[in-house]
């Protein structure tokens, strides 16, 4: 118990100056303020989304998503940034998903809480706090320069893989922990090995939760700018291999908006990004709800 005793005494929670207000009035004021704050947060969210979509959706048509940008992005569509986004994200997920999910299984199924898990958790927690621009610096000096991968889809994808690793570890770990212990006990009592127990009893049940983590990772890759611009470059050609430089949609939007190349195309790109993020969030939520429903 750590409840502050001095505060408990002044139970109406008022300072001497405001003592004219009685408990019922402070309650009413506090309630109104708290409701107002929640409404404000929702209003800000809608203001941003509505503003970008209302300006951007009119720009969206088939040409916009099917043509290569020309004249630095002033005309044409955004096909190559779309391909760039998909390619970089795919590389990131292919690397980060097995590593993240594997780490989560090790932490939950293969060991007891102790020195090793503490060190591993420290690594993941610290990684989660590192700013994306520092990932960009690291990706640039390590993948682009030191490993001589150049500005490329691999460099960008590997950098993003490191960045989303903590997200995937944390969500997978939570998903695996919610699998009821009885599943494991039944499997083991039937003579199943530990590996069989994991693959046949735990994985099927934890899968929606693990998928949610991976999908949230995809969302972070799609939204990222600082880390990819330093590692994947900003080339506008359609990449021919994973060692070619590319430009993601977020980077394309940033360059269009910051250099004032084309506000219409910038709004269109932003609208497409927002729609993509909306879809990703909806899918993640459906999975979470199904997971919660089945867990009961």
């Amino acid at each position: 118990m750590s409840v502050n005793n001095t505060r408990m005494v002044s139970f109406d929670g008022t300072t001497p100056k405001a003592r004219r207000l009685n408990a019922r009035q402070t309650q009413a004021i506090a309630k109104a303020t708290i409701w107002a704050a929640a409404v404000l947060v929702i209003l800000i969210l809608f203001a941003i989304i509505f503003y970008i979509l209302s300006k951007g959706i009119p720009e969206l048509d088939w040409e916009f998503v099917s043509e290569i940008p020309s004249d630095m992005g002033r005309s044409g569509g955004i096909l190559s940034p779309i391909i760039g986004t998909l390619a970089v994200t795919a590389v990131a997920i292919v690397i980060a998903a097995p590593l993240g999910v594997g780490t989560a299984f090790y932490l939950t199924e293969y060991t007891y809480e102790g020195g090793i898990t503490r060190i591993i958790r420290f690594g993941a927690e610290s990684l989660a706090g590192i700013p994306s621009i520092v990932y960009g610096l690291f990706g640039f000096i390590f993948f682009v320069i030191y490993l001589k991968l150049g500005w490329s889809i691999v460099s960008g994808g590997l950098t993003l893989a490191v960045m989303i690793l903590p997200t995937i570890i944390r969500t997978s770990e939570e998903a695996i922990r919610t699998v009821p212990q009885i599943y494991r006990e039944v499997s083991l009592s039937l003579g199943g090995t530990r590996w069989q127990t994991i693959t046949r009893a735990v994985v099927p049940s934890a899968l929606p939760g693990i998928a949610t983590g991976v999908i949230l990772g995809i969302g972070r890759c799609v939204a990222e700018t600082a880390a990819v611009i330093l590692t994947a470059g900003s080339a506008l050609r359609i990449p021919t291999s994973i060692f070619a430089p590319t430009r993601t949609m977020a980077v394309h939007f940033y360059i269009l908006a910051r250099e004032g190349i084309s506000m219409e195309r910038a709004y269109g790109t932003a609208a497409l990004l927002i729609i993509l993020i909306l879809l990703i969030n909806i899918v993640a939520n459906i999975l979470v709800n199904r997971f919660v429903a089945r867990g009961r």
């Binding site: 947060v41 990222e224 977020a250």
Partner: peptide, 19 residues
């Protein structure tokens, strides 16, 4: 509200900057 706040976390930072 929870998914809305989650969405707020997912919006790309460049979009916030642009707005």
């Amino acid at each position: 509200i929870r998914p809305a706040i989650q969405l707020l976390a997912g919006i790309p930072s460049v979009v916030y900057g642009f707005w």
